[in-house]
Design a protein around this nucleic acid. Structure first.
Length: 270
DNA sequence: ATGGTAGTCGAACTA
């Protein structure tokens, strides 16, 4: 039996929260950690500190000030690439193939545009960008490299909460960006067309509420609990039978100077 | 219905 684990976390500045990242890696020791919103140019990424702790394989795609994604891995990474969705030059995607025992797995790490406040593509260019980004994601197939023996995992901040139980109030969020029908339908279509399995919902029944994000603006996030499930872990169908556990690390939202997103873990027994 | 907070980078932008 071979174990494999992967985590995803929108860190909202990797430099500001490097101590939290290091303690997470020490305590949980995932094979791979995918970060979003690193907000860090490539030449300033804290590569040395991560390598020192056994994460020797690091692939980053960052820019100054905004966005930015990174794959931090104990396992060797190869065939690294980024897709420039919507050809905006944004650093919102990176992927690489990891070798986990006998298996080869392409890991896609996404930071989907948030989409602004107004859920109307005619008046809000950010919402139009989000919908266009989703449209391009539909071309991404979980079995794209199956013929060469490569499975797929897709993780990241997808900025959409697809199910009614992925938000604190379905009714009150139907017109709020992240849970509008055009977005949830779009994400469902990305999943269906690409033959992706939602591993969080494979492990945690759809009747049960799950949140991975709580706004900084809520005065008491834990008590009011107005969260959303914006972060996701998907895989190709061949990996889903090997899933052993999914954990949403809710307590991370209560840490000192927290990210507004918490880490999500998927663990496999191959 | 509005405004509430956080981060980057040093005003205004994004979330």
């Amino acid at each position: 039996m071979k174990h494999f684990s992967i985590a995803t976390w929108n860190i909202n500045s990797v430099r500001l929260r490097l101590p939290l990242v290091l303690s997470l890696l020490e305590d949980q020791a995932p094979d791979i950690l995918c970060l979003q919103e690193t907000k860090c140019p490539n030449d300033l990424f804290p590569t040395k500190e991560l390598k020192k702790r056994g994460y020797e394989h690091i692939e980053i795609h960052g820019q100054k000030g905004y966005h930015g994604v990174a794959i931090i891995s104990k396992l060797p990474l190869e065939s690294v690439s980024s897709i420039d969705f919507c050809e905006m030059g944004d650093t919102r995607h990176i992927s690489a193939i990891a070798r986990a025992g006998e298996r080869a797995i392409r890991v896609h790490n996404f930071y989907v545009p948030a989409g602004g406040d107004e859920p109307n593509r005619e008046i809000n260019p950010k919402f139009a960008h989000k919908l266009d980004f989703l449209e391009e994601m539909k071309a991404l197939h979980a079995e794209a490299e199956q013929d060469s023996g490569v499975s797929s995992i897709l993780v990241g901040d997808l900025n959409i909460a697809p199910l009614e139980t992925d938000v604190w109030s379905h009714k009150q969020l139907l017109k709020v960006v992240s849970h509008t029908p055009i977005e949830t339908d779009g994400l469902n279509e990305v999943q269906a067309r690409g033959a992706w399995v939602d591993l969080m919902r494979q492990h945690i029944p759809a009747e049960e509420k799950i949140f991975t994000w709580w706004s900084y603006r809520a005065r008491d996030w834990d008590v009011s609990d107005r969260g959303r499930r914006l972060d996701h872990i998907w895989s190709s169908a061949d990996l889903s039978p090997a899933l052993s556990n999914v954990t949403v690390m809710r307590e991370a939202r209560g840490w000192e100077r927290p990210s507004d997103h918490v880490p999500v873990f998927a663990r496999f027994n191959f």
